[in-house]
């Protein structure tokens, strides 16, 4: 069959600080509810941006908007400088990788096959010969090679989450959008995943990560955006944003922010009077 579509062109290398995604006055409605009510956010290369906030604040919706999954009711989403709707699916796949909140699979593909699916966007491009290397590196980084040949469906929740992350890393897109990558993970692997985010940022990628654990956000994010009822309540470095009054109000729960006794890093904990 003759292919009428032209091949998607891989993006040029990004420079540190370059804006890879941004929203301007973004409003999104899901049904009757306005989930995002005017959000301005900028995602830069070389930076880990954490999206935090209570349940239903709009974190996942904002992430979906940055992934070009949603149509805005108002405002604009730009990815690599171009409005999201103007990119084709294959072009987007070379520019952003997305980790969904829960990983499902309808057929029993093996772990390695699943990770290799992350290379699909590169088929037919000159970078396709990096496939094996990218898959191996992503699997090693997420510590999944031990069950490479097992079917994905036979894994535990935490193992699945790491395999899904490996698939996203293997895609090697300059913009990484991760929706609660740590939700199913134990302490060690939570740290591992956020260290990986930092590594990717240091290598020049932009990483947006939805987190519930404010301690992780404080420790690993360069910048934190606090969402509250569909708006950005605060946006800046963790040390500035994590303010007791602001967090207590946003979460409707008294929160303490204290310096770590040994390192002085920001610690966030709910205030408990037991």
């Amino acid at each position: 069959m003759i292919r009428l579509r032209t091949r998607a062109v891989p993006p040029p290398p990004v420079t540190p600080g370059e804006v890879l995604a941004e929203t301007e006055g973004l409003r999104v409605r899901l049904g009757a509810r306005e989930v995002l009510a005017g959000v301005d956010v900028t995602v830069r290369a070389g930076e880990v941006l954490a999206l935090v906030g209570p349940n239903g604040a709009g974190k996942s919706t904002l992430l979906s908007a940055l992934a070009a999954d949603l149509t805005a009711a108002e405002g604009v989403v730009r990815i690599h400088g171009r409005p999201a709707a103007q990119w084709s699916a294959p072009e987007l796949a070379l520019r952003r990788a997305v980790l969904p909140q829960s990983a499902a699979l309808s057929f029993p593909f093996t772990v390695e096959e699943v990770v290799r699916m992350g290379r699909a966007p590169w088929a037919g491009t000159p970078l396709a010969d990096q496939d094996d290397m990218a898959v191996a590196a992503a699997m090693a980084a997420t510590e999944v090679p031990a069950f490479a040949v097992r079917p994905f469906s036979a894994l535990s929740g935490g193992e699945r989450a790491r395999v899904a992350l490996a698939r996203v890393l293997a895609q090697r897109a300059p913009l990484l959008l991760l929706d609660e990558p740590t939700a199913a993970l134990d302490l060690k692997h939570q740290e591992l995943v956020l260290r990986l985010c930092r590594e990717r940022a240091r290598a020049g990628d932009a990483v947006v990560v939805v987190l519930h654990d404010l301690g992780l956000a404080a420790a690993y994010a360069h910048r934190v955006a606090v969402l509250h009822a569909g708006r950005i309540a605060a946006d800046g470095p963790p040390a500035e944003v994590f303010d007791e009054r602001l967090l207590s109000e946003v979460y409707d729960q008294p929160v303490e922010v204290l310096p770590h006794p040994r390192t002085g890093a920001v610690l966030v904990a709910p205030r408990r009077d037991l």
């Binding site: 999954d69 699916a89 997305v98 699943v114 699916m117 699909a120």
Partner: peptide, 10 residues
């Protein structure tokens, strides 16, 4: 992988 992840892969 599902509709959305498939779209994310182009």
């Amino acid at each position: 992988l599902g509709d959305r992840p498939a779209r994310h892969l182009g």
